[in-house]
Design a protein around this nucleic acid. Structure first.
Length: 604
RNA sequence: GCGCCCGUAGCUCAGCUGGAUAGAGUAUCGGUCUCCGACACCGAAGGUCACAGGUUCGAAUCCUGUCGGGCGCGCCA
């Protein structure tokens, strides 16, 4: 991905729509003048906001400063607006200033002010829309982090698409982004996977046995077991009679499936020995992790780091975190377990760090992990979690507080599940039965582009209906198709240009931008100039859906324009100007889709 | 029961740190190809912003309460 490549510092900032800054400066001068003559009190120093108007009759840009200052000035907003306008210095790009509504100051801009965006885009290329607001702050974005106990399913897919888009947006906004996957390669769930693999292996080796109720029953477990059996024969084989001797009853026999699987794991460790057990364990872990890596890579997602939970135990980081909590007096022992006084730091209740059997909990590792993140010097840490984990947020914050770290550095972004629909019917999904729609299956069905786009089209905390038929459809109903088609249309026009034996001459084209005067052209130019603002807003708010909506609107502006005006006209200067506008549009669409991990095809 | 998230057009969703007449898409109805890909464009119609109060120049947006939906409340991860 190209989005970590940063353009030159000196060339970045100016891609923002310069008129906003210009008007801000003009208003500031006017306010200063009114302070000097006593119209405004000396301490009047408002945040001057310039916003884009929704209605063209309100001009191009508007300022609400008169309404903000009306009270301190003890003047009616409209009267104050008049005085501000009277004190406003002239500017060549501003053709008209009006006062409207409750006291808005509306600015009408010259066409030249809009044309300027074309050379900006064409010169900046892939970097158009990048900014420096992030100021090279180091941000770590942790996302997906699914347990490697099975393939990624469609729930993980949304977190993947969302996390990747947020990371890429932040990079474009000038943050130094570190993408990370936290690999839960320790803990009970992984032991259950290891036991499941081992039992399937034993079945392949010829043992007749009862598979545990709580084991992983997916077909991929058979695959792992088959590899193990093929490569190692009977190396890990033990008679089922020996294994099952004196184990507690499993659920179907009226026992507790949790107790049973734990006893089975203990038996496996005992019979295999720690090294051989670890071998079986790792064969499962590595197989699934490879699958996840491959799956995400094909989904266009790359990480800077895959962080191992086990490494936290092995490096002593977990012990260190526990020791710090103990030393600071935030723990106590009860019923043989070590508890953290998280309720003292905003959590609902206290939490266990070390179980009475001596094992540390997942929470203990997670404290160590977050401590490690902050020790690595990140200015901000973002966790993307499934919304069903929201109850977990207060305890992690509590731990950071107790450790004396700043919990404000942590943002937890919760992603709701997506519900898939096909043929108007809701697809049932259940991880329990081992029958679920995997991310792989989804990608295969609708393609990576549509999946990436659909996943981030909605606000992350919004429940989402994912319409598979729509994602596959090849028409304007499908937003991804619609946007990509706008890009392809420009490419098509360029091919046509070549067929006609004409050439696009950019140097000349940029001299002819004054010929772009129609409403459609100006509105397209306005949309193009908004792009950097959209990227900045979407990045800071962690809301890629803003970019999705923008791209659809931009595509609409282009299609409308394209339908209404011929690009490849005989008049060469006009043709060049229109091609320049089209190429700028193509660039912005490609940039925007790129940030979302979606391709921009030249034809489709 | 407690906590978090959500409630905007028939449906799926936007609505920028409170700002001007609440917007798109889709569905419905009606237009547009001798012309760069109609894989497209245009128009019409469609809303008590769940409900009730409050804050102020101004509230879909902020606060409180009620109703409705989702999720979470393990010595699981």
């Amino acid at each position: 991905m190209v989005y970590n490549r940063r353009p030159n510092n000196d060339s970045r900032k100016r891609f923002e729509f310069f008129m906003k800054n210009t008007l801000q400066a003009l208003i500031a001068q006017a306010v200063e003048a009114l302070r000097a003559d006593g119209t405004l009190p000396p301490d009047a120093d408002p945040a001057i906001q310039i916003e884009r108007t929704r209605d063209p009759s309100h001009g191009d840009l508007a300022c609400n400063v008169a309404m903000l200052l009306a009270k301190p000035a003890k003047t009616k907003p409209r009267d104050l607006a008049e005085k501000i306008v009277a004190a406003l210095p002239a500017d060549a790009n501003v053709t008209r200033v009006e006062i409207a509504g409750p006291g808005f100051i509306n600015f009408f801009l010259s066409q030249d002010a809009f044309h300027a965006v074309i050379p900006q885009i064409l010169e900046a290329g892939e970097a158009y829309g990048h900014s420096t607001v992030g100021n090279d702050q180091r941000v770590q974005v942790e996302f997906v982090s699914a347990n490697p106990t099975g393939p990624l399913h469609v729930g993980h897919g949304r977190g993947a698409a969302y996390g990747a888009a947020v990371a890429d947006l932040l990079a474009a906004a000038g943050f130094a982004v570190h993408r990370e996957y936290y690999v839960n390669d320790a803990g009970r769930q992984m032991d259950i996977l290891a036991a499941s693999v081992w039992l399937r292996y034993l079945e392949l080796a010829g043992e007749e046995l009862a598979f545990p109720a709580n084991g992983y029953k997916g077909d991929y477990v058979w695959d792992i077991a088959a590899t193990l059996h093929r490569e190692h024969g009977d190396r890990f084989r033990h008679p089922w009679a020996t294994i099952s001797a004196e184990l507690p009853a499993d659920e179907p026999q009226g026992g507790d499936k949790e107790l049973y699987i734990d006893a089975l794991i203990a038996r496996a460790r005992d019979l295999l020995g720690e090294d051989e057990y670890r071998f079986v364990f790792d064969s499962g872990l590595n197989h699934i992790l490879d699958d996840i890596r491959d799956d995400l890579a094909q989904f266009g997602i790359a990480y800077e780091e895959w962080f191992s939970e086990r490494s936290l135990t092995e490096s002593g980081a977990v012990d260190k975190a526990l020791q710090r909590l103990k030393d600071s007096g935030h723990t106590y022992e009860k019923e043989g377990a070590l508890w953290f006084r998280s309720a003292d730091f905003g959590d609902e209740k206290d939490r266990v760090l070390v179980r009475d059997n001596g094992q540390t909990t997942y929470f203990a590792s997670d404290i160590a992990y977050h401590m490690d993140k902050l020790e690595r010097g990140f200015d901000r840490v973002i966790d993307v979690w499934g919304a069903d984990h929201h109850g977990y947020v207060p305890r992690v914050r509590a731990a950071l507080k107790a450790l004396g770290d700043n919990p404000e550095k942590l943002d937890v972004l919760l992603v709701q599940f997506a519900i898939l629909y096909r043929g108007g019917e809701k697809l049932q999904m259940s991880t329990r039965s081992g029958e679920f729609v995997t991310l792989r299956q989804l990608r295969k069905e609708v393609g990576s582009d549509a999946a990436r786009f659909f996943y981030v089209m909605r606000k992350c905390e919004q429940h989402m209906d994912f319409d598979l038929d729509l994602a596959k459809s090849e028409s304007k109903d499908n937003p991804i198709y619609y946007i990509q088609y706008a890009h392809a249309r420009v490419c098509s026009a360029l091919r046509k240009l070549e067929e006609k034996g004409w050439q696009y001459e950019q140097g000349k084209a940029l001299q002819q931008l004054g010929l772009l005067t129609t409403d459609h052209e100006l509105s397209l130019l306005t949309s193009l100039s908004r792009y950097p603002e959209v990227i900045e807003a979407a990045a800071l708010a962690h809301e890629p859906h803003q970019l999705c909506h923008y791209l659809r609107e931009l595509a609409n502006d282009f299609h409308t324009y394209y339908n209404e005006h011929k690009i490849l006209v005989d008049d060469a200067p006009l043709r060049n100007a229109r091609l320049a506008l089209s190429l700028a549009t193509r660039q912005v669409i490609a940039n925007g889709l790129g940030l979302l991990g979606v391709s921009a095809p030249e034809s489709m």
